[in-house]
Nucleic acid binder design. Structure first.
Length: 202
DNA sequence: GGTAGGATGGGCT
DNA sequence: GCCCATCCTACCC
């Protein structure tokens, strides 16, 4: 059992579900602004502490680089939907689709600070020895939250999978750096983290 | 603290 | 047939 000393979320509380227009913007802008927001799926929720921007036809690291395919289709669709893909034969990663309908863009959610439903996350991720390992990676957080490809195309503005604002939290500093796990366009500074968070991936 | 290697299967050339 | 937007374990300081 992971102990959770001093994990009270302070006086911060959940705000409204982010509206469609939040996502209908430049991908980099959305990637930065998603930090500190809360992703909720069913009984589990966590604060987004790490994101990566994946652009469209100009970004060789993006699944949208080669145009519309069965897999990349969602990235070209309307903003505010989930793009969930299967990777390395074992894991799934979740993105938030950005930009207007017809233009590709997505933000990979790379790490969460677990906020509620922690017991359930723990059951789903027995390998995690510490709270900060529960959702500190794109494959880890989908496992912890029970997110699979069934949710590909799901709408983040209503239903069991949503992203909400968080009010009353301390301000934080954003750090930008190179994206992780890719080789093409690896030096583009499109990974964003909350500077002082211990819940980011390594 | 750190890293090397293996697991495992879908997407696309 | 090769390439992955990864994670875990074993092993080594």
């Amino acid at each position: 059992m992971i102990s959770t000393p001093n994990m009270a979320p302070g006086n911060a509380h959940l705000g409204p579900i982010l509206p469609r227009r939040f996502y209908d913007r430049a991908t980099v802008e959305v990637a930065r602004e998603l930090l500190g927001k809360v992703m909720v799926h069913g009984a589990t929720g966590g604060i987004i502490v790490e994101t990566e921007a994946y652009l469209g036809l100009d970004d060789q690291a993006s699944h949208a680089f080669r145009g519309i395919t069965p897999r990349s289709k969602v990235m070209f669709g309307p903003p505010g939907r989930a793009y969930v893909y299967f990777i390395y034969g074992m894991y799934e990663c979740i993105n938030v689709v950005t930009e207007r309908d017809g233009k590709a863009g997505a933000v990979l959610i790379r790490a969460l600070e677990p906020l509620f439903g922690i017991d359930l996350m723990q059951v789903r991720r027995p390998a995690a020895k510490r709270l900060r390992d529960l959702a500190s990676g794109p494959g880890k957080l989908t496992l912890a939250m029970g997110i699979t490809r069934v949710l590909n195309g799901a709408d983040f503005t209503h239903g069991s999978l949503v992203i909400r604002d968080r009010r009353g939290a301390k301000p934080f500093e954003i750090v930008a750096g190179p994206r992780i796990g890719i080789t093409k366009c690896a030096d583009w500074p499109l990974r964003f983290t909350i500077a002082e968070s211990e819940f980011v991936s390594k």
